[in-house]
């Protein structure tokens, strides 16, 4: 799971993890409207400008993940959604029968650790 403040380092870990256990990799980038608005306010930028940058960065992270996954022979599925990280996490776990979550973010990940029905690996 990726968000606006995720860096690339999580991608290699996710790919290697899937490679070592023969798993499939679902990469989800979540655009959180509240976070976008807050960032726009803090940086004195227009909300739509910050949204556009976040989305473009999201696609870049997704395709970087995919590129590395393909090089390692790992099956991948890319997703970009707007909404609550917590709600989307639950929906994806149910829809795609995800068996483990990999996340790198301090604040929100605490809620995911507590509420998740499957193992969560925090980086």
């Amino acid at each position: 799971m990726l968000t606006g403040d995720t860096d690339q380092s999580i991608l290699s870990v996710a790919v290697q993890l899937c490679k070592s256990c023969g798993g499939k990799l679902f990469v989800l980038f979540v655009i959180e409207p509240n976070r976008v608005s807050r960032l726009a306010s803090l940086t004195h930028q227009k909300v739509n400008l910050v949204y556009d940058k976040t989305e473009e960065n999201g696609w870049k992270l997704l395709y970087l993940a995919e590129d590395e996954a393909v090089e390692n022979g790992v099956w991948t599925s890319l997703h970009l959604e707007e909404g609550s990280l917590l709600d989307l996490t639950k929906r994806y776990v149910d829809t795609y029968q995800i068996e483990a979550l990999l996340i790198k973010r301090k604040d929100e990940s605490k809620k995911i650790f507590v509420s998740s029905s499957i193992p969560v690996i925090g980086l």
Binding site: D52, E55, E56, W59, K60, Y63, D67, L80
Partner: peptide, 11 residues
């Protein structure tokens, strides 16, 4: 360039 093109097109 490849990643950038994919990101821009997807958006």
């Amino acid at each position: 360039e490849y990643i950038m093109a994919l990101a821009k097109l997807s958006r």
